[in-house]
């Protein structure tokens, strides 16, 4: 997918986070954090509330500026880039609350995220051609919203909104996908469908997921990183992490 990777020097990892620290008025929300994500790996981050999970995603995607440390995506430093440049580099982010364009239709939501015509004049003279339309339909099919293309997005159910946002990321075709609690607030059936969807879309890209549902975590994770008070508490397979006494104490125990 990315020819440059072959010739890159620093690391072979898709994402290399090293010594990442951010402090808000002296409070270190993320404290000297390092972890690495492999090609096509599904990494799940778990941890108690306030552990700094969402902040890590915010740091990677440029929403929050790091106090120190580095985030390298395919050996490209992200901490100095702006949000839209990070998106262009190939990082997609789904937020915790479904954040979609409610005044637009499902079709328009997806079309807007299609990676073309992203500057002012490109957008002004953007043409809705066959390629765009077929891509939008393809993604809509994947996220079970094929029949809702003409619906205004704010009329969708909570679960459908979550799917739409996932779809908006898919159409960007990112190499690294970051999902913040993708099944939160979903019904059991929706949860199943989402797990199914995630399995399909994670085939050809690296994914970082924040999740609380341990059953869901065990189902999808290659590696699990447990965070606590801005630091990594444990790392490893879902099985291994589940048995770690420290993890049981601060997170899973009760």
């Amino acid at each position: 997918m990315n020819a440059a990777t072959a010739t890159a020097t620093n690391t072979d990892f898709v994402l290399a986070v090293e010594g990442l620290t951010v402090s808000f008025d002296g409070f270190k929300a993320v404290d000297d954090l390092s972890f690495y994500v492999d090609e096509k790996e599904i990494r799940v981050i778990i941890g108690p509330n306030g552990a700094g999970k969402t902040t890590v995603l915010d740091l990677i995607c440029g929403r929050t500026k790091a106090t120190s440390g580095s985030v390298k995506f395919r050996n490209k430093e992200l901490t100095t880039l702006k949000e839209h440049e990070i998106v262009k580099a190939g990082v997609g982010r789904k937020f915790q609350n479904p954040s979609i364009y409610e005044d637009l239709t499902v079709f328009e939501n997806l079309e807007l995220c299609y990676p073309r015509g992203r500057n002012v004049f490109g957008a002004l003279f953007f043409k809705r051609d066959a390629k765009v339309i077929s891509k939008v339909r393809e993604v809509a099919e994947m996220i079970n919203l094929k029949d809702e293309l003409e619906s205004q997005a704010d009329l969708l159910s909570h679960g459908q909104k979550q799917w739409l946002e996932i779809g908006m990321l898919l159409i960007q075709d990112p190499d690294l996908l970051m999902l913040d609690e993708p099944v939160a607030g979903m019904s059991v059936t929706e949860r199943k469908q989402t797990a199914e969807l995630l399995r399909r879309i994670t085939n050809d890209r690296s994914v970082i997921v924040i999740e609380h549902d341990m059953q869901f975590v065990a189902e999808i994770a290659d590696h699990v990183t447990v965070m606590h008070q801005g630091k990594i508490l444990a790392e490893g397979s879902a099985e291994k992490v589940k048995q770690d006494p420290k993890v049981i104490e601060v997170y899973l125990g009760h």
């Binding site: 839209h84 997609g92 979609i100």
Partner: peptide
């Protein structure tokens, strides 16, 4: 409505 989201759709 969602200024932040537009950034993460790749727009300045």
């Amino acid at each position: 409505g969602q200024e932040d989201r537009v950034r993460f759709s790749g727009y300045d």
